[in-house]
Amino acid sequence: MNNVKVLVLAGYGTNCQRETAHAATLAGADEVVVAHFSELVAGDVRLGGFQFLIFPGGFLDGDDLGAAQAAALRWRYAKTVSGTPLVEELQRFFDGGGLILGICNGFQLLVKLGMLPGTGTGTLERQVSLSHNDSARFEDRWVHLRANPKSPCVFTAGLEALYLPVRHGEGKLVPKDDATLQALEDQDLVALRYVDRKTGQPTMTYPANPNGSPGGIAGLTDPSGRILGLMPHPEAYNHLTNHPGWTRGEKAPLGVTLLANGIAALRARK
């Protein structure tokens, strides 16, 4: 069995690192490290030592200039002490077989960096963005989700329905053009969708679809299936008492399952 070391990255307004690290521990990681962005820059922490990288939720740079916009530029233009642009280290981590999970603000960062949906060509170009919810409001509410069984995503493999909170103001997926959106569907890169509570079908109806994302898109993967970005917060459902109906005996698969799937995929690797 492979050892799995998880790196949870924080700094500059990220704020879900603590519970994300806890979820990774519950999911069975052998070691979980929470590091500040500055430690990467200083070279004290190197991506190479980890197999699983998580960009947790938060408000990078206060959402100024648009969610994760400034942070995406920081990844692209900031260099480590050894002079390598950080984004190259990220690319190398991924090319080496690493898993990447971006949650909420982390998802926004991955699309703005061009890591998602990913062209598979190794170049990073922004193809989709995440913009203001149709309600033009930040909202905290739980949503019903369904995983796409045809998606190559290792995190959602074998999962069907999920129930998780969304907590964002900028979660509506906007593609560069219609062809880009079509390609997401054709390549099954949509990993998770907002669905109606009763029918289980993807929905455009507010508030089941909290932001107006086309096709109810809540999460994207890349062609390799090793990157997942999603607006809902799996780490926020880490205990039965997180469920808003738990006092009524209601339950659903813990969000931690998504992380456990990623770790299982790493362990299973030859």
Binding site: N15, C16, R18, E19, H22, A23, G57, R137, F138, E139, D140, R141, W142, P165, R167, H233, E235, A236, N238, T241, N242, P244, G245, T247, R248
Partner: peptide, 23 residues
């Protein structure tokens, strides 16, 4: 007002401001 405040970040929410069958 409640929905526009993040009342669950940090992952330890047990009794939320709104609960019940339709939350």
């Amino acid at each position: 007002v409640i929905r526009q405040y993040d009342h669950e970040v940090q992952g330890g929410s047990v009794i939320k401001p709104l609960m019940g069958v339709l939350a």
